[in-house]
Design a binder for these strands. Structure first.
Lengths: 296, 296
DNA sequence: CCAAAAGTGTTTTGTGTACACCCATGT
DNA sequence: ACATGGGTGTACACAAAACACTTTTGG
């Protein structure tokens, strides 16, 4: 029990916190698309209310509690700052270089990344009205000088969505962290189901295709994409049809991995979500939630 | 909700430490090979000198210092416990579930993994002189970890190498952590130069081939392997010849990535190695050292 | 009937694998 | 010369890319 003499703080250990990079697709037909009409990734940022970097935009974050798993801490940070409900949550990296605090206390940040489905991102947080819901991209300018600090009041102003390609200046090394998260997303899309986490539980092949193009940032042959996806055997036809445009309706699919697969992260979410009462993690479950897939 | 950032700590934060999974190839012709005569991976463990898990084998570890980067802390932990000099060092994952301490204080362990080249691993340690290796405390344990414990420099018995497939019972969740590190190694071998880090700076294609087989745990067609490696364009013929067996000598190659590549980790090592005096990291360099490659 | 999107076929190109074979070297 | 490991050639299976084509739907 009391072996770790808490009293010994010799070379003062750094502070530790959690941050989360949250990603979602922008609204479908808004200006939330790039030149070529593709959807884009958007992410919510929060305005800092203290030094250093007071007034700048930063990643949502929170504290670590000794009685919570890291995942839970990340989930709570995400939820309490943005009121969002992620469909995917995975540890990204732990940052701790001494100088990243830029005047603050030395800080170790355990960073997670999360995916939120388009519907929720555009509905919940943008106040259910698409138009003004989306943080118009005066974003870039806004951050420029405005250091006004909204009251710590709940609702608004302190959280805003920005498109991946038009981020404001960020606090600390958060910009680089976001880039790293995007890189991770782009690589994981090739061998896991992350793409589906940006859509609802069911989707058409075209929708899925659009997600892939949004993330890859380039055109992908639709015919080949369709064949490849279907050949993977992980898509199950729900039998339903859904019309996106105004022409022929498309088949609706559901993602159903055949192998144990990358169940890790999905499980992680389930746990974080349904854990009201805590039951202790077993080492195994902790690890299960950890091991993302065959390819670390 | 006032914590849109990473700087405020309140409910008792957990302790934080660093641990390292160190991997190297076993000696060439010893029993360090599996049934089919393949080389195997070995790793050094340290014996715990306190509760919980007193007497059990565990990963080498150490403390975090607020004035050191995580990488440096990992490097120091590695060096001070095993006296080894890694050719590769990369962050693996951060573990922090509340129950992983099993009776100790809640503990967050930032785990790194490292590769040591066969020569050094076998030279320094195997055999009988564990000489300067010291049994320091590991992080997963009681962070209490005072750096002074290492004074028990009696020198040996506290560090020992074990083959991957014959590990003793381990403390905490260290067994699962090791498995995760092996998984990471097995996946990274496909798209980075990690394999070469288990050999010296130069090597023959057969040596490299053996490393791949050792890591994959299965036979790999030598002819195709050779072609694939040469086609990658990352191997440079040194013009030298080296005889492994007693027959025809083989061409000696050096790894020379053409693209910026996965320079991250190599750089990380360089930094850790040459840092006697500290110069502050820039955020950029920290990130450069971080981003392992195209595939997170 | 037309436009637009869903969905299919077919050819070409490239990559991985199996395995037969030749070459260089020391005994 | 011959055994051993170094090194090359080649044929086949299969997956990915390119792109022409057919089908279904709403106007």
């Amino acid at each position: 029990m009391g072996f770790g003499n808490v009293s010994e703080r010799r070379s003062a250990p750094p502070q530790v916190g959690v941050s989360v990079v949250i990603l979602a697709l922008g609204p479908e037909h808004a200006e939330a698309q790039d030149d070529s009409g593709r959807s884009q990734l958007w992410l919510p940022l929060v305005r800092r209310v203290r030094q250093p970097f007071l007034g700048r935009w930063a990643l949502p974050g929170g504290n670590l509690r000794a009685d919570r798993s890291l995942e839970q801490s990340a989930f709570e940070a995400l939820e309490s700052t943005t009121a969002l409900h992620p469909r995917y949550l995975e540890q990204l990296y732990t940052f701790g270089d001494p100088d990243r605090s830029h005047g603050g206390l030395p800080m170790v940040s355990i960073v997670y990344w999360a995916l939120v489905e388009r519907e929720e991102a555009n509905g919940v947080d943008r106040g259910s009205d698409l138009a003004d819901a989306i943080g118009r991209d005066d974003a870039g300018s806004d951050s420029s000088g405005d250091v006004s600090v909204r009251a710590t009041a709940d609702g608004d102003g302190n959280v805003r969505w920005f498109p991946e390609h038009d981020l404001p200046p960020l606090a600390f090394d958060h910009r680089a962290i976001i880039d790293y998260a995007l890189e991770r997303l782009r690589s994981k899309i090739e061998y896991s189901d992350v793409a589906t986490r940006l859509l609802g539980p069911t989707f058409t092949l075209r929708q899925l295709h659009d997600v892939y193009e949004a993330i890859a940032g380039q055109d992908i042959d639709l015919a080949n994409f369709r064949r490849k996806m279907l050949a993977s055997g992980d898509l199950e036809d729900t039998g339903l049809k859904r019309r996106e445009g105004r022409q022929r309706p498309a088949a609706v699919y559901r993602y159903v991995p055949r192998r144990p697969q990358d169940a890790g992260s999905a499980y992680a979410i389930d746990r974080a979500v349904k854990r009201d009462e805590d039951e202790p993690d077993t080492v195994d479950s902790a690890l299960a939630a950890l091991i993302p897939s065959a390819r670390g």
